[in-house]
Amino acid sequence: MFKLLKYALYDIVKSRFALLYTLFMVLVAISIYQVSEDMSKVSLSLLNIMLMIVPLISAIFATTHFFNNLEFTELMLAQPVKRRDVFLSQILAVMFVLSLAIVIGFGVPMILWGADSSVLILLGIGIGLSVVFAGLAFLASVMTRDKAKAIGISLSFWIYFSLVYDGFVLYLIYSLADYPLEKPTLALVFLNPVDLGRIIMLMQLDISALMGYTGAFFQDFFGSAKGILLSSAVMFIWMILPVSAAMRVFKRKDF
């Protein structure tokens, strides 16, 4: 298992993609820190990157990686190793590299320009979203044999969670405006990892106290121990669920 993981990691590092991705993150973070001196504004700009770019790149990279290594995977499956180990070594390597890119890419500028607890949580959300979308991408990959189709499915996961879902929520809120919507919207937030990450982060900034009744309600929930526990548990489920689903399919798949 560890040997497999090692080779998978070598493979990713050789492709130079990881290096470029890290470099890109560093540049983005540095430019954001340079432009704005207000800490909360920096966090918000970094949040935008985390919510948009990180899932997109994670999804695409994970899919392409799966198909680039398909031959290696098939070769490994012919060997006396468990299918589980082959699958996990591939996905863990991808998740590890993506997380490392975020930690280095955003972490180094943060060390240079100063950070607070909210920025650390931002890092955590970035890692969480990388894991979620890498998992979804692997799920998309094992569901089909065609690379282009798999990328298409990964992209539609991304579009769904960062755009379509919010549109659906907005429509729902709009049409049910006459009812008290705080609790239902809270539930809706849990059904989308991107929204969940966004809300957790926004609640860390004291600006949310200024958003009137609804803002105060969410702050109340996410600020309490119960809320923190529940939201991190749900985030964790989101990280596990696509991976285990993908593994189930992978185990039975006829290559």
């Binding site: 919010d166 009137g212 969410f218």
Partner: peptide, 14 residues
């Protein structure tokens, strides 16, 4: 119009 919509603040859609 709808205060509950604040939940979507800073989302890509908005």
């Amino acid at each position: 119009k709808i205060p509950a919509a604040v939940i979507l603040w800073r989302s890509f859609l908005v």
